[in-house]
Design a binder for these strands. Structure first.
Lengths: 173, 173
DNA sequence: ATATCCAGGATAGAGAATATCCACGATAGG
DNA sequence: CCTATCGTGGATATTCTCTATCCTGGATAT
């Protein structure tokens, strides 16, 4: 069992976008550069997050990505499901209905006990992810990470973010 | 994210072996036939369970598999880890150490907050699996499954199990 | 000795995840 | 109106794991 690598990248990106000012956006290429990831591949995951209404995308020059809602309302589960899909990790193949001794399909009204137990464990996993919000990740980062890393991140965001709404400040460089 | 199919087969097999009498064993080929699975492939998973000390194997004619300990002392987590390996589902790629603002490795003493959150969720998943014992799966099966299926299973086991310890009863067929 | 069974390595094949590329539509700015 | 920038989405190649099978060798009861 393995979560796809895209999950990690997606959470990191969402955490960065949570630090933008107001309606500002950040282009996908900047997110890729900041994390040292391939732009072409990262865009796929950003699109998945956009389709899941976690991010918003603004096309055109001065466009980019931003969060679609407050970081307190985005959970890690939202992000994981957007990237990984909604299928449970345990897929019951109904082995009990195979082999000699198999009965008609109608005989299997009660769900397989093994499936029930596995899905119960998965619900516990999802519950923890659901109560962990993006805002907690961000404040944890700002509190625990090396101040130099935080400062660099902050400056990088300030340098690349695009203010939205009106034609306003000129980018200094 | 997806659990390998072997997990489902392994749990079913363990549940069947839990229904054996005393020290009796059941050959891997019988387990494969009972579940309608390929013997060659199922053996791989049975070997993994044996290596994890969940099953015991007896070589030679009259040999086979049996549980290595009481079903109350075998959890679903034991089986899942034996088949899937002990690596967590979320592997932190230390994305935070990549990209332009990366610092020296010594600057990252505190673990990544994202990793911590993901592993916490995984611990919750494992905790539920750890407290679900094979004995519960078996009694749940005997209580909920179609009586005909239970009877067939029981008869199949009686027909194929191999009593151990002494040269005793002759198999009727 | 022989037949039965498990152990474990070698080896394909299938399918998913990873990684790129390109044509297209949208939009801000000149 | 033209152009440069940016996201969308499809097509494609590559890599890797899981799935599945086979075969040799070792152990053991008859």
């Amino acid at each position: 069992m393995k979560l796809s690598d895209g999950v990690e990248a997606a959470i990191h990106c969402a955490a960065v976008l949570a630090q933008l000012n107001g309606e500002a956006t950040l282009p996908g290429s900047a997110l890729a550069e900041l994390h040292g990831l391939s732009p072409s591949y990262l865009l796929k995951h950003l699109q998945a997050l956009t389709a899941a209404k976690i991010l918003e995308s603004i096309p055109g020059p001065n466009g980019g990505y931003r969060l679609a809602k407050a970081p307190e309302r985005i959970s890690l589960l939202d992000i994981v499901l957007a990237v990984e899909g909604h299928q449970p990790a345990f897929r019951c193949g109904e082995i009990r209905q195979r082999g000699p001794g198999a009965l008609e399909a109608e005989a299997y009204v009660k769900p397989c006990g093994i499936k029930v137990a596995m899905l119960k464990a998965e619900r516990a996993w999802r519950a923890v992810l659901a109560e962990t919000k993006l805002s907690q990740i961000v404040s944890g980062y700002e509190a625990d990470a090396d101040p130099r890393a935080v400062a660099f991140n902050c400056a990088f965001i300030a340098r690349h973010q695009r203010p939205q709404g009106e034609t306003s400040l000129k980018k200094s460089k």
